[in-house]
């Protein structure tokens, strides 16, 4: 079974981001970047499937600027076999990424796509679902367990009411949640070997995909700072405040 894992290069989760003064976005200059943590979990799961003899090849894909190669190299160092960079300076939005992935799935014919459930920069949580729709494949989102079968997989997904178990026919798209696994550290010998693994670069146009953004960002702003609370003396005052100050009842 071939597995395709999309990965995204995002602001490192430990970085405290700042909004640009003009409100056009987050200031990324000199900011540490890393692989999206959910994608690390996806790569880890694929590598574990391969180590268990359930997968034959792991292809990792990223769409973005040339520096997105760093995320691909990290995935190769973790154990992926080869990488494809879809090189574009344009801002790639979820639908464009889904179309790019659709084109690559058509070409690569994997049986399973394991994606992070969302990227921690824009938190869109759309790409996996859009990809499944474009492919006409079954999808299972937010999975916290994956057990491969003969021509299906059994997954556990986290839902509001608890855990849901589903059998999903292959080929399929799954998106992973935090509790699926704990990603490994790449070992030094594997980091050194990663350089020798194939990394292919293509342009969106080569795949016949138009990545022109469909969404316009109007403004990016810091969340409003919370003001201090007040202690109310009785229920009547609480109701009054909720009615007249917070205006929620």
């Amino acid at each position: 079974m071939k597995i395709l894992v999309p990965v995204k290069r995002v602001v490192d989760p430990n970085v405290k981001v700042r909004v640009k003064a003009d409100g056009s976005g987050v200031d990324l200059t000199s900011v540490k970047m890393s692989m999206n943590p959910f994608d690390e979990i996806a790569v880890e799961e694929a590598v574990r499937l391969k180590e268990a003899g359930k997968a034959t090849e792991i292809v990792v894909v990223s769409a973005g600027i040339a520096a997105a190669q760093d995320a691909l190299r990290t995935a190769l160092a973790m154990g992926a076999d080869r990488a494809i960079l879809v090189d574009t300076d344009a801002e790639v939005q979820p639908l464009a990424v889904a179309k790019i992935l659709k084109a690559l799935v058509d070409k690569e014919q994997p049986k399973l796509v394991i994606a992070g459930k969302q990227a921690i920069d824009d938190d869109s949580n759309q790409t996996g679902q859009m990809l499944a729709a474009l492919l006409g494949w079954p999808q299972a989102t937010f999975i916290s367990k994956l057990v491969p079968g003969a021509d299906d997989i059994t997954i556990t997904r986290e839902i509001d009411g608890g855990l849901e178990q589903l059998a999903v026919k292959l080929p399929a798209v799954v998106t992973v949640d935090l509790r699926l696994n704990e990603p490994r550290y790449a070992t030094l010998p594997n980091i050194m070997k990663a350089k020798k693994k194939p990394l292919e670069t293509v342009k969106p146009a080569d795949l016949g995909v138009d990545v022109t953004p469909r969404l316009t960002i109007l403004k990016v702003a810091e969340p409003p700072t919370r003001s201090a609370g007040v202690i109310v003396s009785d229920v009547a005052q609480l109701v009054d405040k909720l009615k007249n100050v917070a205006k929620v009842i």
Binding site: S34, Q69, D70, R73, T74, A77, Y185, A186, L188, I191, M192, A194, K195
Partner: peptide, 19 residues
């Protein structure tokens, strides 16, 4: 090459910080 050096530094920094 320089990319490998970068990758080594990145992964080492992760190990130093987290472990």
């Amino acid at each position: 090459d320089a990319d490998t050096v970068d990758a080594v530094l990145e992964e080492a920094s992760k190990f130093a910080t987290e472990q």
